[in-house]
């Protein structure tokens, strides 16, 4: 096991969340759940983050922002979509301004369903993401690509 999975730093971005899922994400940091036990830190800075937590669906205003934040994270990195909105757009998917789930814009590695997603499942999701993070790192080293291919501007993931 590398150090990566022992020190996952998080970037949390509120796309078009109703704030329900955000509150749950923050609840994970409280003494009740205390994710810092696992070395998880909420950094608030893509350049320091390994895991990208998104809540809410993507709308037309912030699709560029989501992509930009993703690009600014150093590899290896994983994306976790929190809540049903982030997964598929949820109840808002038909809205005129909503583009859909996060995977419309960037590749998502873990989907955490729920409305709102419970802290336990969020933590579960992150732990699952750690495995993927490890895998991506091995790929990064063995592929010797050093750098993962970037998303093309306007391109759609997977």
């Amino acid at each position: 096991m590398s150090y990566l999975s022992r020190s996952p730093w998080i970037l949390h971005y509120d796309a078009t969340s109703c704030n329900g899922c955000d509150i749950e994400v923050l609840a994970c940091l409280t003494p009740m759940y205390d994710v810092e036990r696992f070395g998880i830190i909420n950094t608030g800075n893509p350049k320091h983050a390994d895991i990208f937590l998104l809540t809410g669906s993507v709308n037309e205003q912030n699709r560029e922002v989501v992509r930009n934040l993703y690009d600014q994270m150093p590899n290896p990195k994983v994306v976790v979509a929190i809540g049903i909105c982030a997964t598929s757009g949820g109840v808002f998917r038909e809205c005129y301004n909503v583009a859909g789930g996060i995977d419309k814009i960037i590749p998502v590695d873990v989907y955490v369903p729920g409305c709102a997603a419970r802290p336990e499942s969020i933590i579960d999701g992150i732990v699952m993401a750690l495995g993927i993070l490890e895998r991506k790192r091995t790929e990064m080293i063995s592929g010797d690509k050093g750098v993962q291919p970037e998303l093309q501007q306007g391109g759609k993931a997977q």
């Binding site: 590398s2 150090y3 990566l4 022992r6 020190s7 730093w9 003494p31 205390d34 810092e36 036990r37 696992f38 070395g39 350049k47 390994d50 150093p74 590899n75 290896p76 790192r137 990064m140 050093g146 750098v147 993962q148």
Partner: peptide, 23 residues
């Protein structure tokens, strides 16, 4: 009122940072 990370956590953090891509 939290449990907190392992005492070696800072070393894990730095180890992790060195495993990341250079940006």
């Amino acid at each position: 009122g939290r449990v907190g990370p392992p005492v070696l956590q800072p070393f894990y953090d730095v180890g992790k940072l060195f495993e990341k891509e250079i940006t």
